[in-house]
């Protein structure tokens, strides 16, 4: 298990490097000289050169990258150009909001998704199955920003149950969590249902019936356990998707968070902030995949031994 973990961790290093190169290059790929964004319109070439030297922009690209990465690894993400504060501070300030939103949305998708998927699989063909399948279809086709606006209209504006926007109280989290989470519920429920129905056809399940094991025990202790493996895979692959959802949803609900920070700084061409926020999102995605791998390995001995 430990060697499995170390192997997966090592595998992430090249991925991280590749991602960091891309994020670093963003500044240099956008049209125009980044210096132009830093200086006043009519500053002299000398002033420009001084600024370039200050930000290390006069050095060759690979050196700039090495310096940037080195600093980033020690927690120094540079200073925000517009907000004139360390990027690390801005991120630290915003991350808790995104983290609570993302974690709650993930939890909601997982728990509700697995429960509905399992119910649909156990009662397949019944009205329970048909109803959940219809809801799942709806849930997976409605775009999250639209769903968010709809929820705001209904529950915040019309009924006044929840705040329309912001993050001042805990109940401000509910609509954003629902907005991101409902799509996740639909996805998880669909994967759970299909995986359970597939597992139920396996020989070992017939053998469990032949052993006289009660059906509810077979469904919960054996079939569902197998079905969770693909669910974990999907969820760990979808961490990025959930974070992406957080980006738009934070925007729709005017919540602070990495997503809002990213969008604002993109609009203001505050590239150090953009880089920092993207780097955080990339790290979150990688940690999500790693976590998924670890959970799978804990659940399936064949994954642990690299057979599957």
């Amino acid at each position: 298990m430990v060697s499995f973990f170390l192997k997966r961790l090592l595998l992430l290093i090249p991925v991280f490097l590749a991602v960091s190169v891309v994020i670093f290059m963003i500044v240099h790929l956008v049209p125009g000289d980044p210096i132009d964004n830093l200086v006043q319109i009519n500053s002299s070439p000398e002033q420009k050169a001084a600024l370039a030297a200050k930000y290390g922009l006069d050095k060759p690209l690979y050196q700039q990258y090495a310096i940037w990465l080195g600093n980033a690894l020690t927690g120094d993400l540079g200073d925000a150009i517009i907000l004139r504060r360390p990027v690390a501070d801005l991120i630290a300030q915003n991350i808790p909001h995104s983290l609570s939103l993302g974690a709650l949305a993930l939890l909601f998708s997982t728990v509700v998704g697995i429960a509905t998927g399992a119910l649909a699989a156990i009662y397949k063909g019944s009205w329970i199955d048909r109803t959940t399948m219809t809801l799942i279809l709806l849930g997976s086709t409605v775009p999250s920003f639209w769903l968010g606006l709809l929820l705001i209209m209904l529950f915040a504006v019309q009924l006044g149950w929840f705040p329309v926007s912001g993050a001042r109280s805990w109940d401000a989290l509910i609509l954003p969590v629902l907005t991101i989470g409902l799509g996740g519920v639909a996805l998880v429920a669909r994967v759970t249902r299909v995986a359970m129905m597939e597992t139920a056809r396996k020989d070992f399940v017939m053998m469990l019936h032949a052993k006289g094991v009660p059906p509810w025990q077979i469904e919960l202790r054996h079939v569902l356990r197998h079905a969770l493996l693909p669910v974990v895979t999907i969820l760990s692959l979808r961490i990025g998707w959930i974070l992406g959802g957080a980006v738009t949803v934070e925007f729709v609900f005017a919540r602070p968070g990495l997503g809002s920070l990213l969008i604002t700084s993109l609009n203001q061409r505050d590239y150090p902030v953009v880089q920092g926020a993207l780097l955080m999102l990339a790290i979150a995605v990688m940690l999500g995949t790693l976590l998924g791998d670890i959970i799978q390995a804990a659940m399936d001995p064949r994954v642990r031994e690299g057979i599957k």
């Binding site: 396996k202 020989d203 070992f204 017939m206 053998m207 469990l208 032949a210 054996h222 356990r225 197998h226 659940m299 399936d300 001995p301 064949r302």
Partner: peptide, 11 residues
């Protein structure tokens, strides 16, 4: 059962 390879729960 006929097939021991698939008759046991693999996990």
């Amino acid at each position: 059962s006929q097939n021991p390879m698939t008759s046991l729960d693999p996990i």
